[in-house]
């Protein structure tokens, strides 16, 4: 009795569930599809999507925060102090530019998309550019160069920086010597001064050590950095 009941119930269930399933697939047959025909149509990514990094170089103040935050140490920045002769202009916030960003290189192929560099950037010039097709033909192209200075200019400015620094150090040393000669004050105070304004000193050697691995072509990617200033990210953060 029980087995008979089960037998017919199974048949009944089989028929009804198959019909139900067919009804469901039939309805889906006429539903609008969700396919996006990719190369022709593209999805708009959500504003915080971690796509590809981009630095709006004209608003970057060269503070090196991003280079320090990066867990895989792939951001390489070199700066030089801006002098009057450079006509460095103003930062977006209206204050005069203090540092020239000579090189700003990111090894995109090593980036883990953690987003820390974007988080820490005080000027919000480091941002996600909402594109994901960073496909290149060579590995070298994945090294992104955002600074606009040609190599010889970089060298000149660096040398000038060195000279200025050396002069300053000399002046400081002289001043210290004068002070030491003049009075009985202890040494620490004057020594701390040069150390403070050369804040980038510890970062520079590591950057210098890492960059030579890849030959930097003199490629002024001016269009690259300037055309997308801070897009949604700026708004989003604000």
């Amino acid at each position: 009795m029980n087995a008979t009941y089960k037998y017919f119930r199974d048949i009944y269930l089989g028929v009804t569930t198959v019909s139900l399933g067919m009804w469901i697939t039939f309805r889906h047959f006429f539903m609008p599809t969700i396919t996006v025909q990719y190369p022709r149509e593209k999805l708009i990514y959500p504003p915080r999507a971690r796509t590809e990094l981009r630095n709006a170089i004209e608003s970057c103040n060269g503070c090196l925060q991003c280079a320090r935050a990066c867990p895989v140490e792939i951001i390489h920045i070199e700066t030089a102090k801006a002098q009057d002769e450079d006509n460095a202009g103003n930062m977006p916030d209206g204050k005069p530019r203090k540092l020239l960003v000579l090189t700003f290189d990111v090894e995109m192929s090593k980036c883990v998309h953690c987003g820390l560099c974007v988080e820490v950037c005080p000027t919000e010039s480091m941002h996600w550019n909402n594109e994901h097709e960073h496909v290149t033909f060579t590995r070298e192209e994945l090294m992104r160069h955002w600074a606009t200075y040609p190599p010889e200019e970089v060298r000149r400015l660096q040398e000038r920086d060195e000279i200025l620094k050396a002069e300053k150090a000399k002046q400081a040393a002289e001043a210290a010597a004068k002070k030491a000669a003049a009075g009985d004050q202890p040494a620490p105070k004057p020594v701390s001064k040069p150390a403070a304004d050369g804040a980038e000193k510890p970062a520079q050697p590591s950057a210098a050590a890492a960059t030579p691995a890849i030959e930097k072509p003199a490629k002024p990617e001016s269009g690259d950095g300037t055309d997308s200033p801070q897009k949604e990210n700026g708004k989003e953060k604000a």
Binding site: T25, H28, F29, F30, M31, P32, T33, I34, T35, Q37
Partner: peptide, 13 residues
Amino acid sequence: KVAGHIQDRLGPM
């Protein structure tokens, strides 16, 4: 095509 549309896809296009 049938497979695609039943699964809300488009199939070969």
